[in-house]
Nucleic acid binder design. Sequence first.
DNA 1: CTGTAATCCTGCGAGC
DNA 2: TGCTCGCAGGATTACA
Length: 280
Amino acid sequence: MPELPEVETVVRELRPHLVGRRLGAVTVGPHSLRRGWSEEWATLLPGRRVKAVRRRGKWIIIETDRGPLLVHLGMSGQFVAVPAERPLRPHTHLVVELARGIQLRFRDPRRFGSVTPFSDIDTVNAFLEERLGPEPFDLKPKPWRESLAKSRRPVKAFLLDQTAVAGVGNIYADEALFAAKVYPGKLTNELTPAEAERLRKALPKVLNHAIERRGSSIRDYVGGGGRRGKMQKAFQVYGRTGKPCPRCGTPIARIRLAGRSTHFCPKCQAARRVSVRGQR
DNA sequence: CTGTAATCCTGCGAGC
DNA sequence: TGCTCGCAGGATTACA
């Protein structure tokens, strides 16, 4: 569920509650999460001092004086710092006491998320770099073009591949392709230089737009402060099947691509260029 | 190298 | 109203 803008929002909102603070008592729920989860959390975490909270792709890294924690929100994860008096909702798997009556809470109904302790930051970095391509904000024209040329699969599938670009998920893949006026099913090695460049520029633009709105709350997502985002109100194509394209009014289409629902404007993101004379 | 499907889970809306 | 079905923001693996 949470993609780069949502994870970035969580990181930004958790940071003031965590950095420089000590983790207090820990309560662990009965269910295990991805990548392991056990009662030993209660002994591992308390007393640690948080040094930094950062994001890489859709991962959250909490650096402490006794090793980092790596957190992924999966599809339905919520990671919040809220007053302890706020009622605990079902599916809360971890509660950490912080200073001044604030609790750090990890909640995840579908349990696709994970909270994993690592011994040192080098191991975490190696883990991440093995799985993640460049951040969408750092794409350089030439390497980007070459990366696209090396692959021959639908550009939508390419965008969802975390080793190609980190942090893009189903929502922002569709939104970026719309912004770039690129057909989601077009093979990456067949993108024109202009299309590749439009897409490269559309990614940070769309993602920053979403970060400014504190992410998209469709169902479960809330930021680190527990508040919903607003980006879902600004979707151009995602989840707007049958509704008019904001640019040309053509009904938004939905197809299945890379196993995921894919939304696009059949006119603005034409499957083929109209190149043959006299054809329409 | 690609694509597809299944897997891990719960919850919700659509449709009957 | 109540039930079943399909689908949902992700990552990983098996298999064709």
